[in-house]
Amino acid sequence: MGTILCATRGGEASYRTQDRAIEIARERGDKLLFIFVSDINFLSHTSAPVLVDVEGEMENMGEFLLLAAEERARNAGIEAEHVVRQGDFREQLKEAAKEYQVEMVILGRPGKEGSVTKLQMLEELVKEIEQELGIEAVIV
């Protein structure tokens, strides 16, 4: 049994990604590893003081979102685990893919509005993962 790494968050767009990842895992007989990468770059757009352990709060929130995804997969009969990382999305995803020796990486197509993740960036990332790591990567 191999492992599929699926980058996800919450929200409608992410639920679609999770459902598709569950389908693929079922077809291939693999288990799922959900990953949430938190970055706090948005704090650079504010002039107000930031006195909170934002990274810790984001990590807790990420754990919760991935537990929900994991539960979704388990309810569909798919074995699932999760990992929360902090920092640059591209780098953290590639590192996790190497570390967990995954066989496939699944990325969700950006939602219709407001997402800071752009499709072009994901397409470039897919190429990077395939060329640098030799791992199959898809946008669903």
Partner: peptide
């Protein structure tokens, strides 16, 4: 306000963008 910006930032990271 800065509070709007940080709220939108966290919500977006969680998959719920506030446009």
């Amino acid at each position: 306000s800065s509070a709007n910006v940080v709220t939108a930032g966290i919500a977006e990271r969680a998959g719920y963008p506030i446009t």
